[in-house]
Design a protein around this nucleic acid. Structure first.
Lengths: 257, 257
DNA sequence: TATATCTGTTCCCGCTTGGGGAACGCCCCG
DNA sequence: CGGGGCGTTCCCCAAGCGGGAACAGATATA
């Protein structure tokens, strides 16, 4: 089921795997019970039962009606996780105010496991609706956030991530080869911001600026909007300035060892 | 370490417990390594090591510098969890707009495991800063959200929760006995909204209105502010009206079986 | 440079424990 | 009343997990 060439094999604990398989399943589909879970995962009911007991005692899951769902403890964990990543308050404030000013969608993302994770998102008044939401993971080659972050990672890490990528063409403009990607990254480093010209979703363009602490990249901030409003000129002019100054504010307010 | 009279003992799985002990620990303190964790939990390094491997493979945790932290996957899980609880979009929209209108703190909470969990929070322009944030769990007897939700739960569940509570006086006004509590709940049911008169934090008052679907309570919405601005009259008048109409909007927009 | 002492990692052994089969109790439906 | 769905319980047996100890780097100390 998983013969992927992962780097660190080592010993892995089966019961824990099972527990997280259950959690994953409940994340996808809430409200299912012992039998259903057992079938789905290919385990005996008794096995699943003990696991559910354990998770319930831990308040990881909750029994609701005749089925289980994930518990609200995850909300608490999530807010701790965000706090552990840099200074989240500043980021939040800056993203919100940029969304207010521009009226568009503003997002902040960081890299993890070779993907971009959205830490915060704010929608301005006339923002288009997008599917992405906080917590989502997106590939790095097809988003301006991803490409911008990637551009400022250490060279070896770039190689590593680029090698593991599967370049799947999301639109006609999606980057589909390492060569294209490296060239793009070079451009980003030169101009100091990154563009997504309908490379991830048709009709949508974005600009992103990197947020750095000294020489290490923390993440990136982006504005997203419809191509109709986001002309070439605005993208490279006004909008690029917006994200760069917002990134700057975050950088200045972010002090930690 | 845990001889609490929990209802459903059953069989519980040790490795899973250990795994979640590690996660709990990392939630409290990020950036620690194998040795430290092993010491803290009283396990051997090799044991902890295999667990960390498992969690890392699962992308539950991330190795960062010389230590581990919880992964961003939790953000994704959290957003799924919120979606599974009623219709979160409506709630969010309503809470945000109420915070805008009033300029104060507005929160939405639901009951789980006899406590209130905050699902969403919005701060108006001149809102006081409070410590509570999304995901936090608070006791039900000392918050207006908690008391309001409690008031509309099925009688048997009220008994159950009230019995397990430990009434710890947070301020001079905190409810400290079941009798007081039951009386308060009666009042809430009569007037259709609940008040917190500096019962949880000195200087802060709140009003909450229940959000119901048919006859089952989904949660409650509240406004919080300093006693100086939140006079008796405003609390029971204007502010109570605000939360009740917001609750109403949510109820009307929430349709599911 | 050598020595000491932290890390994290690996190996292997033996006992615990957790996974599974099967039986049971319950509820709902025919 | 009987059948089939659910969750729960019991018990057994091996395999999987926890732990001790040895190993390997990295950093510091002299």
């Amino acid at each position: 089921m998983s013969p992927q060439p992962n780097k660190r094999p080592g010993r892995t604990i089966r019961s824990v795997q099972i527990a997280f398989n259950i959690i994953d399943l409940l994340q996808e589909e809430a409200g299912i019970g012992v039998t259903r879970i057992a079938d789905e995962l290919g385990h005996s009911k008794s096995t699943v039962h003990s696991h559910l007991r354990t998770l319930e005692e831990r308040r990881i899951i909750v029994r609701e009606g005749d089925g289980y769902r994930l518990g609200l403890r995850f909300l608490d964990v999530a807010s701790h996780v965000r706090d552990q990543i840099g200074n989240f308050d500043i980021v939040q404030k800056e993203v919100d105010s940029l969304a207010d000013e521009t009226g568009e969608i503003v997002q902040f993302g960081v890299e993890e496991y070779g993907m971009v994770s959205y830490l915060h998102k704010a929608q301005g008044d006339h923002a288009v609706e997008t599917l992405s939401r906080v917590g989502t993971q997106q590939p790095m080659y097809s988003t301006s956030l991803g490409k911008t972050i990637l551009a400022y990672l250490p060279a070896e890490r770039i190689e590593e991530i680029a090698a593991e990528m599967e370049y799947e063409p999301k639109t006609a403009n999606t980057i589909t080869s390492p060569e294209e990607l490296f060239e793009e990254l070079e451009t980003i480093r030169e101009q100091g911001y990154g563009i997504d010209d309908e490379e991830n979703i048709n009709g949508l363009r974005c600009v992103s600026a990197p947020v750095k602490n000294d020489e290490t990249i923390l993440g990136a901030i982006s504005i997203t909007g419809p191509s109709s409003r986001f002309t070439e000129d605005r993208l490279h002019g006004e909008l690029a300035d917006y994200v760069r100054s917002a990134a700057n504010v975050i950088e200045l307010n972010t002090k930690f060892s």
